Amino acid sequence: MILSISDLQVAASAKLPSSARDFYNSGSTDQITVHENTTAYKKYRLRPRVLRNVSLATPQTTLFSQQIAFPLCVSPAGIQAIAHPTGELATSRACAKRNIHMGISSFANHSVEDIVEAAKPIAPIAHVMQLYTMKDRAKQLRIIQRAEKAGCRAIFLTADSPVLGIRYNEHRNDFRTPTGLDFPMLEKTSAQIRAETHDDQFKAFNADDHSWAREIPWLRSVSKMEIWIKGVLTAEDVILAREFGCDGVIVSNHGGRQLDGTPATIDVLQECAEAGAGKIRVHVDGGIRSGSDIFKAIALGAECCWIGRPVLWGLAYDGEAGVTKALDILYDEFKRCMQLTGCNSVSDITKASLGVMRAHGPLARL
């Protein structure tokens, strides 16, 4: 019986081949960050208010000028067809059923056009296109133009990956994308992909000489989509994103897959939100495994949360139905958490709703 995201992880991991399971679940080098992303949430405690009428509580919020069911969206996660052949198409349909937005990875196994179209008969959700800084500017521009023409609302520029993090599992398993899976956005066939390791392939197309001054003005010059920076972990970079006129930032450490030993995203969220000062939108991903985790992130200043691995586990467990199950679990847990803390709307969730555990002594107010 699947009652929680933890249940889903166990069920999915049992179905996945070991190389795919390691690729999805592991982080870089010593796995410190990938584990702390989740465990860091445990030191924050909820401060419920009682005897409040929560009969009309609603978790709805607005993002990209559109009302969504609750402050959660699906992160751009690559190579979803390893988990299930329908991959990103199933994820898009599940997002539409739950009425939340979806990110599309440059490493998607289906095209942006097909992924966007998959949701349309169900609900008019927004999609965003994840992008790397690429050596081949012409190809990068084609990705942008295809995404914009398909109706994507924003570019999520992955800024934390001038090179890939050191992922021991990929080297030990000689990880390569399985036969038959293409990367249509990167214009690569299965045969081309299989000829290289994941690391060599990334080195071949990714530009490690990227910079704020080069990337942001160029993106502004070629697209009307919003520009968000994904991979921010410091107040200093939030301020730079503001200075360069970006629309938002995603507080993210790439799911612990880049530089190991970086802080859990929930632990730097407050400083990033304060640096945003209401001048730029601040979202967060990494380690979210329950509705109360979403609540805690909102209390610490995030406008919205994004999830990756729970969706991949849902896909591996039961395709579209599995993703729907994951999103339904998180929706129900988040709404009940709101009600049990006395919050009737997302705007009611503040730092006053949380405390943090001290090693010795009483709970500390935030």
Rank of each mutant, 00 (worst) to 15 (best):
D7M: 11
L16Q: 03
S18M: 09
A20F: 12
I32H: 15
I32Q: 14
E36M: 11
E36V: 03
T38V: 11
L46E: 00
L46I: 05
P48W: 07
R49N: 08
R49W: 04
R52I: 11
S65I: 05
Q66A: 13
L72G: 03
Q80S: 04
A81C: 10
A81M: 05
E88D: 11
E88I: 04
L89W: 03
A96V: 09
N99G: 01
S105I: 04
S105E: 03
N109S: 03
N109V: 00
E113R: 14
I115G: 07
Y132M: 11
K149A: 15
K149M: 12
T158F: 10
L164H: 03
R172T: 02
R172W: 06
D174M: 09
P178R: 07
L181Q: 08
S190R: 06
R194M: 13
R194D: 11
A195M: 11
D200P: 04
A204H: 08
A204V: 01
N206W: 04
N206K: 08
W212H: 10
R214G: 09
L233I: 13
D237F: 05
I239S: 10
E243T: 09
S252P: 03
R257L: 02
L259S: 09
P263Y: 07
V268P: 03
A275H: 02
K279Y: 10
K279G: 05
D285V: 10
R289Y: 08
S290W: 07
D293T: 07
G308W: 01
L312E: 02
L312T: 00
A316S: 06
D318M: 03
G319L: 02
C337G: 04
C337V: 09
M338H: 08
S347M: 11
T350D: 15
A352E: 15
S353Y: 01
H360Y: 14
